[in-house]
Simulated scan of single mutants.
Amino acid sequence: MIIFTADNGGQTGEGNSNWPLRGNKAMLFEGDVRGKGFVWGSKLPKLNYDNNQLIHVSDWLPTIVEGIAGLELDKNKWKLDGYIVWPAITMDSQSPCKELLVNLNPHMKPEFMGQAAMWVGAWKLIDGLPNCSLALCPDGWLFNVKEDPNERNNVSDQHPDIVKQLKERIEYYNSTHIE
């Protein structure tokens, strides 16, 4: 089995392109966080198809160990954040990964001004941006990344309830942060 994946988008200032996605490395837009990859091997029931399921780097360990190798991870010993996404890759079933903390920089680090991003279902909230004064930044950048993967339409004003919900999830993760 061969798994190839990227860790982030390219740095556009160094000649890379993430087009048509917005942003580049060190930002929280899809041009930074969305990566391409491929899986190839004899255990795949079909070849040459696109899979746009939500998969995080933390999903690869349980997927390889349990999903591909067929071994069992001791859930009491290993407290993993990742999911087994092998069925989502091989059988077009829904990924068990429904929520993704894209980035978390707690408010205790003033140099980051609380840059965080949370993705739940089709919704992605970016809270703060690098080098963005609070007077110029919106209270949150909300995108429906399924309908608007290029993040051109900030819809936070139209969906304050979703902004609130995703900010609450960010605050939950902030509360679990260990210095």
Score class of each variant (00 low, 15 high):
residue 15 G to W: 15
residue 43 K to R: 11
residue 140 G to L: 03
residue 19 W to A: 04
residue 45 P to Y: 05
residue 126 I to C: 04
residue 41 G to W: 13
residue 11 Q to N: 14
residue 55 I to Y: 10
residue 26 A to P: 08
residue 176 T to R: 02
residue 91 M to K: 10
residue 75 K to G: 10
residue 176 T to Y: 00
residue 166 L to P: 09
residue 146 K to C: 10
residue 176 T to F: 02
residue 25 K to G: 01
residue 139 D to Q: 08
residue 166 L to S: 08
residue 108 M to T: 14
residue 104 L to N: 07
residue 141 W to P: 02
residue 170 I to H: 02
residue 91 M to P: 03
residue 97 C to A: 09
residue 163 V to L: 07
residue 35 G to Y: 10
residue 122 A to D: 14
residue 30 E to V: 00
residue 12 T to W: 15
residue 162 I to T: 12
residue 85 V to Q: 08
residue 155 V to I: 15
residue 2 I to H: 05
residue 54 L to M: 14
residue 132 C to I: 04
residue 147 E to A: 12
residue 43 K to Q: 12
residue 117 A to H: 09
residue 119 W to D: 02
residue 130 P to N: 10
residue 95 S to I: 12
residue 152 R to N: 13
residue 176 T to L: 11
residue 71 L to Y: 10
residue 118 M to F: 09
residue 60 W to P: 15
residue 103 N to S: 10
residue 18 N to K: 00
residue 176 T to I: 05
residue 14 E to A: 09
residue 63 T to G: 01
residue 161 D to I: 04
residue 16 N to K: 11
residue 73 L to R: 04
residue 163 V to H: 05
residue 118 M to G: 04
residue 32 D to Q: 01
residue 78 W to D: 04
residue 17 S to Y: 14
residue 97 C to R: 15
residue 169 R to L: 07
residue 152 R to V: 00
residue 151 E to N: 09
residue 58 S to R: 07
residue 92 D to P: 11
residue 54 L to F: 12
residue 52 N to Q: 13
residue 31 G to T: 00
residue 1 M to Y: 06
residue 50 D to I: 12
residue 64 I to W: 05
residue 119 W to I: 03
residue 5 T to N: 02
residue 39 V to W: 11
residue 42 S to L: 07
residue 1 M to R: 01
residue 109 K to W: 05
residue 24 N to A: 11
residue 47 L to Q: 13
residue 135 A to Q: 12
residue 151 E to Y: 08
residue 100 L to Y: 15
residue 121 G to V: 06
residue 140 G to T: 06
residue 145 V to D: 08
residue 52 N to Y: 13
residue 28 L to K: 01
residue 8 N to F: 05
residue 137 C to P: 15
residue 46 K to R: 14
residue 66 E to I: 04
residue 137 C to Y: 04
residue 127 D to I: 05
residue 122 A to N: 13
residue 33 V to C: 00
residue 137 C to I: 05
residue 97 C to Q: 14
residue 114 G to N: 10
residue 171 E to L: 01
residue 80 L to D: 09
residue 64 I to F: 05
residue 8 N to C: 03
residue 10 G to S: 14
residue 39 V to R: 13
residue 37 G to P: 04
residue 44 L to S: 08
residue 153 N to R: 12
residue 72 E to I: 01
residue 121 G to A: 13
residue 31 G to W: 09
residue 167 K to R: 11
residue 83 Y to W: 10
residue 119 W to E: 07
residue 12 T to V: 02
residue 53 Q to I: 06
residue 19 W to S: 03
residue 18 N to P: 04
